[in-house]
Design a binder for these strands. Sequence first.
DNA 1: AGAGCAGCGTCGGCATTGTCGAACGACGTT
DNA 2: AACGTCGTTCGACAATGCCGACGCTGCTCT
Lengths: 260, 260
Amino acid sequence: MAGSIQSLERAAAILRLLAGGERRLALSDVANALGLAKGTAHGILRTLQQEGFVEQDKDSGKYQLGAELLRLGQSYLDVHELRARALVWADDLARASGETVYLGVLHQRGVLIVHHVFRPDDTRQVLEVGSMQPLHSTALGKVLTAFDPVARAELVESEREAFTAHTVTDLDAIDAEAAVVRERGWAQAVEETWTGVASIAALIQDRRRNPVGAVALNGPVERVCTAEPNGTAGPVRPELVVSVREAARAISRDLGAPRF
Amino acid sequence: MAGSIQSLERAAAILRLLAGGERRLALSDVANALGLAKGTAHGILRTLQQEGFVEQDKDSGKYQLGAELLRLGQSYLDVHELRARALVWADDLARASGETVYLGVLHQRGVLIVHHVFRPDDTRQVLEVGSMQPLHSTALGKVLTAFDPVARAELVESEREAFTAHTVTDLDAIDAEAAVVRERGWAQAVEETWTGVASIAALIQDRRRNPVGAVALNGPVERVCTAEPNGTAGPVRPELVVSVREAARAISRDLGAPRF
DNA sequence: AGAGCAGCGTCGGCATTGTCGAACGACGTT
DNA sequence: AACGTCGTTCGACAATGCCGACGCTGCTCT
C-alpha cells in the first residue's frame, strides 16, 4: 500500500472538517486547523467549489459543504445492494412489530445507518439515514463487533463514551458479551445509549457468510422488554427477537447466503 | 479563476462516473471512460478508498461509491440553513393540505430535493431527499427558472425531455410562462413530469431577496386541481396556492427576508 | 493441464503540478 | 485614518503525482 495522493488526502480532510465542525468555516480556520498555507487551502477549496463539493457564502466568504455531496450520498444508497435487498424485509419487520427499524453497516469507528423505517404509528421522527451510532452501546454495534473482526479492532481503538448509567465501557465486559452474542446469534442494548430505549439486532451475511451489516428493532423499554414483577425492565420479549432474526435471515438469503 | 487542482478534478469525475453509471465499475472502465492511464486511475481510486469515498468489492475488484459520501451528505443537510428553517413550515404545510411537500434548491441543471415531508396518510413512499428533478417540467423548477437567472441559463443548456403529453419543451413557451410566474408569484405543473400528479410551488428568498430555493406541494390531480364540468382537470385549487405561498413567505421571513 | 488472456496492483524516471510564502485589495474595526 | 483581518492572486521551486511498462493472480479456452 504505497503512497497516497497528497492533495486528495487534504481535500478529504477539509471535507471532514467542514462536516464535523461549525456550520461554516473561514479559509484561515481551515488552513490553521490542518496546518496548511492559506494559498494551498484556497486552491483545494476553489477546486472543491467548482466541483460542487463545497459552497461559499458570498458575503462572509466562509465555506460549507456543497450539494453535490448530498446527490452522491443518495447515489451511494441507490447502488447499495444490501440496502436494496433489505428494503422490503425491514418494512415488514416494522409493520409486524410496530417499532422503528434500522439497517446499519460498519463504517470507520461506528455504525452507519443506511436505512430507517419509521415506527408505523408515529409520524414525528427524524430520519437517521446517514448518521452514525456507536459500536459499543447499540445492538447494531454489538452484533457487528461480535462477528466482524474489523469492527472489534475499531472498537478497541475508539473511546467508549458512557451515555447512560447502563453503558458498558470496559473492554473485557464487552468481549464477554460479544461471546454471548456469537453464541445465541443476536444482541440487545437496553438503555445503553438513550434512556428509555431498547433495541434488538441480528447479523446479515452475504453469500460467503461474511458479515455485511445488521438489522435492528428500536423501541421504548416498556414495549420492547417484559416487565419484572417489581416494575423494572426485564429481558426483551422473545417474540420480537424471533422477528428480528427472521428478518436478518431473510435479507441474508436474498443476498445469496446459504440456508442456515 | 486560475488553475484548478488536476487530481481533484479527476477524482470528482471518477465519483460522478461511479454515481451515474452502473452499480460497479472496473479499474479499466474508469481509466478508459476518463482517458487516464490505468496507473493514474488506480492511484486516485486507492486514495479515495482510503478516505472511504469509494469501496472495492473484494472478489471482483470492482469499485463503487463509499459510505463516507452518505455521511457527508447527511452533514450537508445538518448544516443547510434553508432546510433547518423550513422544517417546521414544510411540516405544517403537509399537515394542513394533506399532501406531499418538497423543498428544493438549484443544483447544476436541476432541482435538488433537500427536504421531503410524506403525505400524512400514506406511509408507502420513497424518500426523495438527495434526488434531482428537472427544471422545465416541475413546479419547483419553474419557480427557480423564473426568479434565478442562473437557473434560467442552466435550463437553456439542458436538454428538455418530454416526459408526458403535457410537458412544455419549447424555450419561448417556457419563457412566457416564466413571465407569468414572476407576475403572480407562484408556479404550477400539472402532469408535466408524472401523469396524474400536479404540483404548486412558490419562491423562498434570503435576507437580501436572493432566490435560494422553493417549496412545493405535490399531489394527485384529482385533489390538487378543481374539476371542470366535463370531467377534465381544471385550474389548481386557490386555497392550496394560498397555503404554499404562505409557507414560502414564512420560511423567507425566518431566513431574514424583509416583509412583503 | 497448460497456455493464453485479462484484470489489478506496483515501480521508477520524468516533468508536470501542486505547494508555499509573500504581496495585493477590500472590508470592517479601533 | 491607520490598523488588522480576510480572501485572493502570483511566481518560483521542487516535491509530487503522472505515465507506461512490468509482475502477479485468477479465469477461460483449447
